[in-house]
Simulated assay, not measured.
Amino acid sequence: MPDEHRAHSRDFVASLDKGLKVLLCFDRKHPRLNLSEVARLTGYSPATARRLLMTLQALDYLHGDGKHFWVAPRTLLLARPYLTSRPAAQLAQPVLDLLAERTRQSASLGILLDKDVLIIARSTGRRTLSTGLGIGSRLPAYCSSLGRALLSTLPMEDVTNYLASTALEPWTPKTTRTIAAVTAHVTRCRITGWAECNEELELGVRSIAVPVHNTAGEAVAAVSLSVRAERMTMQAFEETHLGAIREAGRRLGATVPFD
């Protein structure tokens, strides 16, 4: 439902929308938040943020110590219906497992959701990474290989609008933070069919991603592989593993229904 229609729809429950936005404030960068931080991240008044936080705590979706709040285990129940009822994650898992086992690295499958990449399936190889990624993790599209691969499938006007409305924050000292540079990465992916992230999300971690197209030729997701930087250069990474990533992308597009 478009934002401009929500406030005028009799079927739209604004309080539910606000509560869910509060829950979504918590992530890897914000594992513990206080009242003022939640108000800032959501744009709600402190009074509104406080009522929402206290309600979520009373329902056992948040825990707190009187000053800070953090996500409680009950929130896992919100993801369970998707994981158990939709086939995408289940059917994708064997493909990711095979990619991870073949390369001995970590493989991820993501879709574009709002301004972020949402990880919907993941397999960790024998050589584990410290990224802490898992199903449900969100990544910024502008500086992740998954995000750049997904952005490359959109009309250029949409990419321009996305970049103009996104704060290009520095995740590491190597994060690309100019619209021109991000656009160049996306354009390169349009030409080559793959995107890279060279220590821009986490120092010491490189990743390569390719878009996943379904049997109708529509871009529906992206699959990536990540390696420790000390194990291989980006050039060696491309030469060694790009073929396997592309093969996984083709298999995912042919066998996994994304809806």
Rank of each mutant, 00 (worst) to 15 (best):
G136T: 10
A164T: 01
K115E: 13
S165G: 12
M156R: 14
T128I: 11
V212Q: 02
Y162V: 00
G193W: 10
L150S: 06
L146K: 05
Y142A: 03
A184G: 06
P155M: 00
S123C: 07
L133M: 14
L168A: 05
V205I: 15
L163I: 04
G204N: 04
P140S: 02
P155S: 02
R190L: 00
T128M: 13
L113A: 13
S130T: 15
P155H: 01
A181G: 04
S207G: 09
L150D: 09
I120D: 02
R177C: 07
C197P: 00
A184E: 15
S137D: 04
T153Q: 14
I208D: 01
P211L: 00
L129G: 11
T176Q: 10
E157M: 06
V117T: 06
L168F: 11
T166A: 04
C197A: 13
L139M: 10
S144I: 00
L154W: 10
P173A: 01
E196K: 12
L168I: 06
V182P: 13
A209N: 03
L201F: 11
A209G: 05
T176A: 12
T166Q: 13
G136Q: 02
S145A: 11
P170M: 07
G136R: 03
L113C: 09
G204Q: 05
R188M: 08
T128L: 08
W194V: 06
N198W: 05
G193Y: 04
V205P: 09
Y142V: 03
S152M: 01
G132E: 04
